[in-house]
């Protein structure tokens, strides 16, 4: 067992699509909160608690915005709390809806943070490169050209400034100066890139057996992982959409799904938890294995010290 990061990038990509779908597919508070809790745990595990608190700070205004937009402009819901301004009742129902919507959005943002640290740029290029070779190549070249461009831009700026000497520029001259600098930069980068293109052609660029840089090989473990994940995901969707997921906010909060089949409800909740906890389980198994190895190592050391094992 490895942690999710060490599997083929397509596995993490699929996992990511699954959890993203799970967190967007419903506004049932139980579902949203479960997704949120696991997203928070995973972000803290990957990035640390400080990073998470910082994100929370960013997110807070957005949450207020969504709650406000959901409750100020509609008067749905029966349990009126108070009136904002002229005749716009704020009810428990539309406040809850706004809160849950905002939390759903936060969950999605958190999953994307996980995605960013799970999938590095080269893995994204490897995924794209196989299916869209031209675009994969363009992306790789863009990434290569960015630092080149910035470096050359600094050089051009220095040269242009050196030509000015002590001269001070007025406003209009400054614009002209900037334009000239950017023009020099553009023509340099264009001609430079076209030389690269010519040398690519000379080395036989559209060759059929050209491959993309990719460190990962797709093996049986990856296939098993994908299969398990898809089975869980499809099973979850089927159970959930047989009725248990339904939740009505208006006219009053009512989990209508509770009245349907209890077994399906429990199965769907368990499968959701299994999907969400997937990477954590992998990490836990790893951790325990690592602890076992460490323990063996320690007893070995102890035995050497005690003289039970003697090295010659």
């Amino acid at each position: 067992m490895q942690s999710l990061k060490d599997y083929h990038p397509i596995v993490s990509f699929l996992y990511f699509i699954c959890v993203l779908t799970c967190s967007m597919i419903t506004r049932n508070p139980i579902w949203v909160l479960l997704c949120l809790i696991f997203a928070v745990i995973y972000v803290i595990q990957l990035k640390g608690i400080k990073y998470f608190l910082f994100q929370l700070l960013y997110f807070f205004p957005m949450l207020i915005f969504i709650i406000f937009m959901n409750s100020y402009f509609n008067s749905l819901g029966l349990t009126v709390l108070f009136y904002l301004g002229k005749g716009s009742p704020v009810t428990v129902e539309n406040l809850t809806y706004g809160l849950i919507s905002g939390l759903a959005l936060f969950t999605i943002l958190l999953w994307f943070i996980c995605f960013n640290s799970l999938l590095t740029a080269d893995e994204i290029l490897a995924i794209m490169g196989k299916r869209l070779p031209t675009i994969g190549l363009s992306l790789a070249m863009i990434i290569k050209f960015i630092p080149d461009t910035i470096k050359q831009g600094r050089e051009v700026l220095l040269n242009q400034k050196a030509m000015l000497g002590e001269q001070k520029l007025t406003g209009q001259q400054k614009v002209k100066f900037a334009a000239r600098m950017l023009t020099v930069l553009l023509s340099w980068s264009m001609e430079n890139s076209l030389e690269t293109a010519d040398s690519m052609l000379a080395k036989g660029y559209p060759a059929k057996n050209r491959i993309n840089y990719s460190r990962e090989h797709f093996n049986l473990g990856d296939a098993g992982m994908i299969l398990t994940m898809l089975l869980l995901f499809i099973g979850h969707l089927m159970c959930a959409f047989s009725g248990s997921i339904k939740f009505a906010y208006y006219p009053f909060l009512n989990w209508t799904g509770l009245t349907t089949n209890r077994v399906l409800l429990i199965i769907s909740l368990i499968s959701l938890c299994l999907i969400l906890i997937f990477p954590l389980i992998l990490d836990m198994i790893n951790w325990f294995k690592w602890q076992k190895i460490l323990k063996q190592e320690q007893t070995m050391q102890q035995q050497i010290i005690d003289g039970i094992i003697v090295y010659e």
Binding site: T134, F145, I150
Partner: peptide
């Protein structure tokens, strides 16, 4: 459809350079 045109390396370059400038 961009992929299907199979552009030559030279014809790729404008897109690459302009994107690199934009991102920079």
């Amino acid at each position: 459809s961009y992929e299907q045109k199979k552009p030559k390396p030279r014809d790729l370059m404008p897109v690459v350079v302009m994107s690199a400038l934009a991102v920079a």
